[in-house]
Design a protein around this nucleic acid. Structure first.
Length: 290
DNA sequence: ACTCGGTCCTGAAGGC
DNA sequence: TGCCTTCAGGACCGAG
C-alpha cells in the first residue's frame, strides 16, 4: 500500500537509477491500467531524456526533455522494479533482478528502458495504478493535482494550516486526514499511526481538532512520515526498495493491523481495536486516544 | 457545498 | 483438499 513514504522511496530509487538518461525503448504490455495509457504513450517517451523525478502527494513525476511529464501513481499494488545491465550493480536481493534477462511477470505492465540498459518495470497486479503524460507547465492545473492540499512535510504545512483545513469539516478526523484536499499523501496506515501518536481518537469530529489538538497532531504526522521515509531510505542505497515495499517500517506500526494486541503506550492497559470508518479499517486504542 | 457509499482489480486468507 | 466468500485499498463518481 504505497503511501507518501513508499512513493518517496520509489521516487528516490528512480532518480538514482534513471535521472539524466535517455529512454530508448518502452514496452506497454497492458495499456488498461486504472485509466488507459495516453495516446502515443511509447512514442512520446522514446527518445526523451528524463530530467529528474519528483513527488507530489502519492504521484511520481518524471520531467522529460520533451516538455512533457510522465505521471505515475502506484495505486495500492504498484511496484517499480529496477534492473541494471551491469551485473556488478545488480542488487541480487530480488528475484526480478537476478542474472540474465529479468523474468517477465504477467503483471509487468510497462517497461521503460534507458540508453545504458537500465530498465524500470512497472508491476501492478490489481491495476489500481496509472500512468499519464501531461505538459510539464500544466502539471499544477492538471486534474490530478489542482485540488490537492499541502505537502505534509513542507515547512509551510503548520498547525495553523491544518487547523484552518479542519475547522469546517464535520467528518471524523480519520476521514478528514485521508481527504487529499486537506493534506496530500496520507493513506490509511499513516493516518492511524499519526492519530495514535497524538493521542487523538479517530472518531472525533475534525472540527474539534482545530486549535490545540492540531498543534499536537501536526508534529506527529511529520514524524511518522519522516521515520517511514528513513526506514525505506536506509535500504535504498542498493535500490532494494525502489519497488514500493514498506521497508522495515512495517515492523514499527504501533496500531495498524494490530487488532486485539496490547497498546504499546507506557502504562496503558488498552487493546488495539479495529473499526470501519468510511469503508476503511481504522486501528486505534480507545484508552489513550481521546 | 459537503458527505457518503459504490466501484474498479486480484491475490491472500478464512470458512465450510 | 478445494471451492467459495470476503477483504484490502486510492481516488473518482454519482447520489442524497
Amino acid at each position: 500500500m504505497p503511501e507518501l513514504p513508499e512513493v518517496e522511496t520509489v521516487c528516490r530509487g528512480l532518480e538514482a537509477a534513471l535521472a539524466g538518461k535517455r529512454i530508448t525503448r518502452v514496452i506497454a504490455r497492458r495499456p488498461d491500467l486504472r485509466i488507459p495509457l495516453p495516446e502515443g504513450f511509447g512514442q512520446r517517451l522514446t527518445g526523451a531524456r528524463i530530467t529528474h523525478f519528483s513527488r507530489r502527494a502519492k504521484y511520481i513525476l518524471a520531467a522529460l526533455s520533451t516538455g512533457e511529464t510522465l505521471i505515475i501513481h502506484l495505486g495500492m499494488s504498484g511496484r517499480v522494479l529496477i534492473s541494471h545491465n551491469c551485473a556488478k550493480t545488480r542488487p541480487g536481493a530480488f528475484h526480478h533482478t537476478q542474472h540474465g534477462p529479468a523474468k517477465t511477470d504477467k503483471h509487468d505492465h510497462v517497461v521503460i528502458e534507458a540508453e545504458d540498459g537500465t530498465t524500470a518495470t512497472y508491476n501492478d497486479h490489481r491495476r489500481f495504478g496509472l500512468m499519464d503524460l501531461a505538459a510539464t507547465n500544466e502539471i499544477a492545473s492538471h486534474k490530478f493535482f489542482k485540488g490537492l492540499g499541502p505537502e505534509p512535510l513542507d515547512a509551510g504545512f503548520d498547525a495553523a494550516t491544518l487547523s484552518a483545513a479542519l475547522k469546517s469539516k464535520n467528518t471524523p478526523i480519520k476521514s478528514a486526514l485521508l481527504d487529499q484536499r486537506v493534506v496530500a499523501g496520507l493513506g490509511n496506515i499513516y493516518v492511524c499511526e499519526a492519530l495514535y501518536r497524538a493521542g487523538i481518537s479517530p472518531k472525533r469530529r475534525a472540527s474539534t481538532i482545530a486549535g490545540a489538538r492540531a498543534v499536537r497532531l501536526l508534529p506527529e504526522i511529520k514524524a511518522v512520515l519522516r521515520e517511514a521515509i528513513k526506514a525505506g531510505g536506509s535500504t535504498l542505497r542498493d535500490f532494494a526498495h525502489a519497488d514500493g515495499e514498506l521497508g522495515y517500517f512495517q515492523h514499527k506500526f504501533r496500531v495498524y493491523d494490530r487488532e486485539g494486541e496490547p497498546c504499546r503506550t507506557k502504562g496503558c492497559k488498552g487493546t488495539i481495536r479495529r473499526i470501519v470508518q468510511a469503508g476503511r479499517s481504522t486501528f486505534f486504542c480507545s484508552q489513550c486516544q481521546r
